[in-house]
Amino acid sequence: MVDLGQYAVPVLSAYGGTIVLLVGLVGASVWQARRVARRLDAIEARRGGSGGGRTGGKTGGKTGARTGARTGDKTGDRAARAK
């Protein structure tokens, strides 16, 4: 083990705090991504499932393309067509 001497507390707390913050950031990002993906899947399933899959997923989607056209939201339009 590394001998940190009298500076063990500051060094270990700096590394510990950094690791906690980074793991928290990655964990929050993954949690948010899964939540959004579940919500998108639920909406698409409710709409009949034939309209298309999740953005970036394996199935394409025309539903969101129509959405984008109606709402004027270009990202929704393009994202909906994204595979």
Partner: peptide, 25 residues
């Protein structure tokens, strides 16, 4: 890595909003 990952999430979230808006209309 995190920016790419989170941007993908934001694009999906934008689509969720668009689909919900369409359902309301």
């Amino acid at each position: 890595a995190l920016v790419l990952y989170r941007t993908r999430t934001e694009i999906r979230a934008r689509r969720v909003k668009a689909l919900i808006a369409q359902e309301r209309m």
